[in-house]
């Protein structure tokens, strides 16, 4: 059904360009990982990009060395604390509402303006991650809106359509969302027990089907042959608490060590992100 409130373009559906060399290329040209397994990419974080909001932040994760691979770019604005809508029931603490949206031009496929299920999913995970960090009872009867626009997704433009890629991209996006939202919340002056940051770790197979999988942090799907599993962790460093854990993939249940190893690496990635976050916040108040 056409959305009459927007300009929808031609009646017939349009198709994204198909490139002539799509068939000549291999299904996936692997660029090997350019960083050590436990190194995250460089991150740029800045607060105060939206002066009209109560708090805001912008996060950019450096493009990996290969051209064509875009880095993640996120813009987050926080509005509130503000009064709840009249229809809302009484709440003795702050009501958190999160909203994550990809820009139409953020990914290889053009995104629509309506939120799709994966974006809703990101919003729910983000809310869970932040709820554990906010001191909610300081603000009775109020609400806060956290809105993240994914200006550019973490996707390789060169590689052709890959199955399952999106899933791993969402992990990286969520990690970034958590970090940028924490910066924006601190900028807005909403009480938090700690600065929460997101980190991603993945179990990858780099050399064929039978090779021994390794655990890496901050994975870029195009740099690995196959990602078996990944987890995104929201972690409070001074409290040593995990507020949200999102695990996806296929791991044998017998191998608990592998699982804990993955979580530990995720925490390590989160700590790396937290260092950037703290540096950015220290800059903000000076």
């Amino acid at each position: 059904m056409a959305d009459r409130r927007r300009i929808n373009g031609p009646a017939g559906a349009t198709i994204p360009p198909v490139f002539d060399d799509a068939s000549t290329r291999g299904p996936k040209s692997i660029k090997s990982r350019s960083r050590p397994a436990n190194a995250t990419r460089k991150m740029y974080l800045k607060t105060g990009v939206t002066p009209s909001a109560s708090g805001s932040a912008y996060l950019e994760i450096e493009t990996s060395a290969t051209p064509g691979v875009s880095g993640l770019k996120l813009s987050c604005s926080v509005h509130g604390p503000r009064s709840l809508p009249r229809s809302a029931p009484f709440s003795p603490h702050i009501v958190l509402s999160t909203h994550v949206k990809y820009a139409p031009f953020a990914t290889k496929q053009r995104r629509g303006y309506l939120r799709d299920p994966s974006e809703r999913d990101l919003g729910i995970h983000l809310e869970a991650a932040l709820r554990g960090a906010i001191i909610a009872d300081r603000w009775p009867k109020s609400g806060v809106d956290i809105i993240i626009s994914i200006v550019e997704g973490d996707q390789d433009r060169e590689t052709s359509q890959l199955q399952g890629d999106e899933v791993w991209d969402m992990m990286n996006a969520l990690g970034g969302c958590i970090t940028v939202a924490a910066a924006a919340l601190a900028d807005a002056g909403i009480d938090c027990v700690d600065t929460v940051a997101g980190g991603v770790a993945a179990l990858v197979q780099d050399a064929g089907e039978d090779s021994i999988p390794t655990v890496v942090v901050d994975p870029i799907p195009s740099e690995h042959e196959k990602i078996l599993a990944a987890c995104c962790i929201a972690y409070l460093p001074t409290r040593d608490e995990v507020t949200n854990l999102w695990f996806r993939g296929d791991l044998p249940a017998s191998d608990i060590d592998l699982y804990t190893n993955l979580v530990e690496k995720g925490i390590q990635a989160s700590k790396n992100a937290n260092r950037v976050l703290v540096g950015c916040l220290a800059e903000t108040i000076q």
Binding site: A186, V193, T238
Partner: peptide, 24 residues
């Protein structure tokens, strides 16, 4: 002089918590 959420300010035996702080 400057604080970031989650930063340790001191033991509860020396200060009383004011606005913008929490006890843990």
């Amino acid at each position: 002089t400057l604080a970031i959420p989650g930063q340790l300010l001191g033991p509860a035996s020396r200060y009383q918590p004011g606005p913008g702080t929490h006890l843990h």
